[in-house]
Each structure stands twice: as C-alpha cells, then as structure tokens.
Write a protein that binds this DNA or RNA. Structure first.
Lengths: 123, 123
DNA sequence: CCCCTGCTTCGACATATGTCAACATAGACG
DNA sequence: CGTCTATGTTGACATATGTCGAAGCAGGGG
C-alpha cells in the first residue's frame, strides 16, 4: 500500500506539472484558459464518466482494467467511448498488458482542477 | 414555464452544504451521487460559463453585476442564460439591488467540488 | 405617466453529445 | 492458421446544448 511519490496536490509551491489555470478567484480567466479548463470539467460532467472515473480512482492498486469497471449500466462500446473522452481530457491514462487494457488516474491533472477551485481563505 | 428545478445541491436548512460525495478515491460513486456531482461539473464544463464564474469569483467585493461581466464574446441573453445555469447548479447566487442584479459565488458548493477531487496522499 | 436602461425569457436553429448495434482490431491459445 | 475473448471504432439516431434576435419584465427618472 505504501507508495513512492508525494502527489503535487499537497505541494504548496506552484506546480509546473499542470499549467492550465490559476485559482478561479485570482483573476478572470482568459478565453484560452477557460477553453482548456472547461474541457477538463466537461469530461467529468457526465454521470457515467464520473462513475467510471471514481471506479478507476478508487480501485485497488490505483488502476483497473475495463472489464473491472464495465458495470455502470451502459453498453460496452459506450463505456469505451467514455473512457476515451476521459483519456482525451488528460484525466486518465491507459496501458495494454496482454489481453486487458488498464486505466489509471493522472494525478497532476486532477490536482490542478482542485487548485483551480480553491477559494479565498476568509470573506 | 421552463423546467426550472429547485436546487438539489443546497440544503436549505444547513448552510454547511452536505458535500454531495466523498472523494473520488474513497469508493466508487453510486449512480445517484454521480448524477448530482456531474451536474456541478457540467456547469463548469463550458468556456463561457467558466469565464463568467471566474469573473464573479475574482471580482472586487466577491460579487459582480451582470453589466460588469457581460464582455465575454457572446450576446447578453446568452450571458443571462449561462448565469442561470450556474445558479441552477448551485454555484452562484443572485440578488437584485435596484437596477442591477448581482451574482456571487456559493463557497460551500465550490469547496465540496474541491474536496471531491482530493486524491489520496500515497496510494 | 411614459420611456429608458438592465436583465430575463421565448422561439428558433445548428451543432454537440450519449447511446446502441454492428463491425473491426489485438492478443492469447489451441 | 483459426478462433475466442477483450476493447476500440463506425454509423445512425434521438436528445441536449449553445447561440441569437425579439419580446417581456422591473425599476428609476424625466
């Protein structure tokens, strides 16, 4: 269960890993920043994708093959389609090992989304 | 007239806004949890809405009237339409004061989204 | 009282999206 | 090779979404 690296989420210094955007409260987003960030949020803006994503994220070992997470109430091609969207958005990565394809979460991108949502401390 | 719904995300009693869902990594989302959370992410999944949201979030005093943030490249009715979506998702609140309508961020909902994106420290 | 300004709602439209069945591809294993 | 299993791709289709112009509503001054 132990692991090797500290996730960038907890790093107080600005991370170069996920370049997209500053916190929402810091300044208005430019059109291009908004375009980039919206793509990530849109990827999580579907119930089926969100379930698939949480299935991968919470799976033992931090990765899951498609066969492990296909039971979300839609057909197999649809699962594949959604996984591709999550991958295109940078939220998941995939790797084929033998017969199966394993998906895992891309921590830096998720951490960037989290930082983007940070609000100002005290109002 | 339209299918405007009561906000499902805000508990009228508890301001503490029951965070809809556990962190993504804790366990797989149920269908209903995914439905609820996806609505929030979807609201931020459009570039124009994200710009409007960051405009409000970063505006001096924590609030902005529509006239202050209408310059995002779409028509004024479209701005109003997007603000309504953000409001329906529970991300913004609005208040009319005289001639102008002011929007501000609902911090508890944004915070809940942030918590949802938290990754495990070492997994 | 009437009209002007700020904002929302309506109606219409083009495009994007989610979904499935059918087909295609990639390895594994006889 | 042939075939089986696990995934991905294609094509089609219904629905959702983003957008605009026009019209409606609410307050504030003249």
């Amino acid at each position: 269960m132990s692991n090797t690296k500290v996730l960038p989420l907890l790093d107080p210094a600005g991370q170069a890993a996920a370049p997209c955007c500053p916190p929402l409260t810091e300044r208005p987003f430019s059109a291009q920043e908004a375009e980039t960030a919206a793509r990530m949020f849109k990827a999580l803006g579907d119930p089926v994708r969100l379930r698939l994503f949480s299935l991968v994220a919470s799976y033992e070992g931090g990765e899951a093959c498609v066969c492990d997470i296909s039971d979300v109430g839609v057909s197999q091609p649809t699962v594949s389609h959604h996984l591709k969207k999550l991958k295109d958005a940078g939220l998941l990565t995939s790797e084929r090992r033998g017969t199966w394809v394993y998906y895992r979460v891309e921590p830096s991108v998720v951490a960037a989304m989290g930082r983007l949502l940070a609000l100002r401390p005290a109002a």
